[in-house]
């Protein structure tokens, strides 16, 4: 069963600055939706609103019909919303395998009141299986016993992605998962995401700067500029849209084009 993410009229103000201005977005479950925009457009802020790290001035976030407003980050995770971070949040002193296992383990730990202390045999097996599967999916099997702190940026991105994939989320928010990957890695990366979505039915909302990747995987993209949602449509349409060009390159460039 797939689950949709719906963002309705979110506004976020930091003091006098309006970071996100009345932005709405609908991302369908079981597909990959792109969220692009120039730097400072408010993409990560929108993610932070969804995952409960930033309280919006107004607006609502709904996941599969359940309102998420007012819930803590942990609560939202339990409702099925997972995310990765632009500035990676990894357990630096742990190995790759431990990192990935900690994802589902963290979720299971607060399922029951004794979950913090006791890990049943069945749960333990599920954690191991999920972690192994996600590690393989992301192609980091050969790194599994290395400490995360020693890895390159691209490898660390993959670890973070594997951790989110190992956790039984229904919807994932991925914040620039491909930045730091080298060219060949990026090439395979799109297929990894597509396989994951078709295998598990998880929905993905993707912030990405690499347009070829976006074009490869996203059915639909949303373009955010100065906190406003300025464009919605298929990727190929978006790339030729004058509105989007103006946002990325400035008005003059459009006039000259």
């Amino acid at each position: 069963m797939t689950v949709d993410l719906d963002i309705q009229q979110i506004t976020v103000r930091f003091g006098g600055i309006v970071a996100v201005n009345d932005a709405s977005l609908h991302a369908e479950g079981g597909t990959i939706t792109g969220l692009i925009g120039p730097n400072g457009a408010g993409k990560t802020t929108l993610f932070n609103v969804c995952s409960g790290r930033v309280r919006p001035t107004q607006g609502t976030v709904t996941l599969g019909g359940q309102k998420l407003d007012g819930h803590s980050s942990a609560n939202r995770a339990h409702r099925g919303l997972g995310r990765t971070f632009q500035r990676m949040e990894l357990f630096e002193n742990m190995t790759v395998r431990e990192n990935v296992r900690t994802g589902p383990e963290a979720l299971f730990s607060s399922n029951r009141f004794y979950g913090l202390f006791i890990c049943s045999r069945k749960e333990g097996r599920e954690i191991r299986d999920r972690a192994d599967e996600a590690i393989e999916r992301c192609g980091i099997t050969q790194l599994a016993s290395q400490t995360v702190g020693d890895l390159s940026t691209g490898q660390r991105r993959l670890v973070e992605l594997a951790r989110a994939m190992a956790t039984p989320f229904k919807f994932l928010l991925l914040d620039e998962p491909s930045s730091g990957l080298d060219h060949s890695e990026t090439g395979q990366f799109g297929q990894v995401l597509l396989d994951f979505v078709s295998d598990t039915g998880t929905g993905i909302l993707l912030i990405e700067h690499d347009m070829s990747l976006v074009a490869e995987v996203c059915a639909l993209i949303f373009v955010l500029d100065f906190g406003r949602m300025i464009y919605t449509g298929t990727t190929s349409d978006a790339l030729v849209s004058p509105v989007v060009k103006a946002a990325y390159l400035g008005e003059v460039a459009v006039a000259g084009a």
Binding site: S73, A74, R163
Partner: peptide, 14 residues
């Protein structure tokens, strides 16, 4: 001790 933010985002009650 490494990343409370990540633990929180994965549903643990930190």
């Amino acid at each position: 001790s490494n990343s409370p933010v990540a633990l929180d985002a994965h549903g643990a009650n930190t």
